[in-house]
Structures are given as C-alpha cells and as structure tokens.
C-alpha cells in the first residue's frame, strides 16, 4: 500500500511538473511548424510568471493575473514575430535577446516596482485553488492522481488535443505547416504567410504566459528571479525529441516531468545523483537527433 501511495504521489507530481513544459512545448512546436523556431520560450514564460504575480497583486485577483500573463506572453510573441518576420532578424539571436530581455527586465521591474530583489511573494496574493472535479476526485487513487490539481494542469491537458486539432484540422493550421515546409511555395499559392506566422507565434505567446503563470501561482504564489530555470529549453528539447508532433511532444514532457519528480524523491533514497536526471532530457535530444540523421544519411547512401 505504501509503495502504491508513493507511486501515485510521484505520478501526481509528474503531472504538475509537466504542466509548464507541456504548455511551452505546444508553443515551441507551433513555432517550429511555422518555420520560425522560437528559443525565447523561456523568456516569455518568465515574463508570464512576473505578470501573474504583479497584476494578481495589484488587481487583487489571481485570475486577472493569469489573464495579464497571457497578454504579456502574446505581446512579447508579437514583438518577436515582428522582429523575425518583418525586420528579418536572425531567429536564434532574437530568441536569445528575448530571453535576456525577460530575465533583465523582470529583475529590473521587481526592484523598481516592488523594491525587492530575488523573491517576491506578496501575502495578499493567493495561489490558484485546486480544482477538484466533483465525483471524479473522490475516486480512490485515480481521484488524487488525475482530478485534484491546480486548474492550469487541466488547461495543459486541453492544450494538447486542441493544438493537434488546430494544426492538422483547421485551415490556418495546415497553412502553418505548409509555411514551415516551404515558405516561398506557401506564399506563391496565396497563403497569407506573415499573418499565419504572427498567429502561430502569438498563440505560442499565450501558452507560454500560461506556463509561466502555472509556475508562479500553480502551487505557491511567488515570483523568483529566473524561476523558469531552463524549462523553456526542456520544452524545446521535448519538441525536437518528438519532431514537432503535439501528442508525442506532450508525452516527452511527461517523461521529463517524471525525471524532475524523481530527482526530488530519489535524492534521499538512492545514490543516483540528481544532476543525472537533469541532464537526461538534453542528452536524449542530442542522441535522438543523431540517430534520426544517421538513419537518413544511411538511407541516402543506398538510394
């Protein structure tokens, strides 16, 4: 019974920890699919974390804060889209700049607006209350595992099929894929390329805002400088690992969430160093890309 309890606990915290990864990964894969890989996911998340705490505090409502986080994410994504599509700036450089802007900007604002550095956790701000689904949450084990979470956890579950639906079953989604595969060809058949790029990136911005909001108010209610701690890049790793597919990306996020959950639990119980789990997502991506490419090269060699 005790083991079962532990497993359920680890599984439940895996779901919680995977939430920001899933949301950011959906953003990342949209940017990948539209051919404008956004490595500024990290920065947009961090800005979302800050926005949810700042606006939640000012407006006296955490949900209003979540709304602000979404808006801030969208605004930053629009800026990014403007810079890379209209001004034709280099993608990677712009993404890195976005991350630096968010990291420096939030730290600066924290000091200017709230006169603190490091951590800001206003007592007036409440974390999002757990949403226990009626009846379902009373089920033994499963209830605790699946139906007693912070609301944004469920949002992340919804985001997966919705992203897949959008990408594969709607006109704008199919346009987005077409643009990613060949921008010139897409333009030549009359697809509004720039508008679709804005759309893909700005939906991503909203998702990253949500991801950041979950980090800040999903469990506790605080903002800490650089609290995203590389999660944007883990999400990106999941996307590359899954070659841009929504469900597979989400699965990779769950796996990486499990690594994160395990590193907390196993730190005490076993001799596996926590850094091992921290490295695993990145190592897996490098190996996966190498294997995919090796297979491709090998096939070419025979044809």
């Amino acid at each position: 019974m005790e083991t079962l309890d532990l497993i359920v606990n680890i599984a439940a915290s895996t779901l919680r920890l995977a939430t920001p990864l899933i949301l950011a990964a959906m953003a990342g894969l949209l940017s990948l699919q539209v051919g404008q890989v956004n490595i500024g996911l990290e920065g947009m998340m961090l800005a979302g974390s800050f926005a949810v705490v700042a606006f939640g505090f000012w407006l006296g409502s955490t949900w209003m804060g979540v709304l602000a986080a979404i808006l801030v994410g969208v605004a930053l994504a629009a800026l990014f889209a403007f810079v890379v599509t209209r001004l034709k700036a280099n993608l990677i450089v712009s993404g890195l700049a976005l991350n630096l802007l968010a990291s420096g900007g939030t730290a600066y604002l924290l000091e200017i607006l709230f006169n603190t550095s490091g951590t800001f956790s206003p007592t007036a701000l409440q974390s999002l209350p757990n949403l226990s689904l009626p009846v379902l949450s009373d089920l033994p084990l499963v209830g605790r595992l699946l139906f007693n979470h912070s609301p944004l956890v469920y949002v992340s579950w919804l985001a997966i099929p919705l992203t897949a639906l959008f990408l594969y079953r709607t006109i704008p989604g199919i346009h987005i894929q077409a643009i990613g595969q060949n921008e010139e060809a897409a333009r030549s058949v009359g697809i509004p390329v720039r508008r679709r790029q804005y759309l893909a990136l700005m939906i991503g911005g909203a998702l990253c805002g949500l991801a950041g909001a979950h980090l800040a108010v999903g469990d506790l209610a605080l903002f800490r400088e650089d609290m995203t701690a590389g999660r944007g890049f883990i999400a990106l790793a999941a996307v590359y690992f899954a070659a841009g597919r929504p469900r597979l990306s989400a699965l990779a996020c769950l796996l990486f969430g499990l690594f994160e959950a395990l590193q907390f639990r196993l730190q005490l119980a076993s001799s596996i160093p926590p850094q091992f789990f921290q490295m695993l997502p990145y190592v897996m991506v490098v190996i996966t890309l190498a294997v995919i490419s090796a297979r491709k090269e090998w096939r070419k060699g025979w044809s």
Partner: peptide, 21 residues
C-alpha cells in the same frame, strides 16, 4: 538603479544589431 538594467540594454543592442545586420 538595478544592474539588471544593463541586461536590458544588452538585449536591446542584440535586437538592433540582429535587425540591422
């Protein structure tokens, strides 16, 4: 003035350079 301002300035430098280059 928080030193993080410099990060903002550097980020702006990168944006402008990346755009202009």
């Amino acid at each position: 003035i928080p030193r993080d301002l410099i990060d903002i300035v550097v980020a702006l430098v990168i944006f402008f350079t990346a755009v202009e280059i």
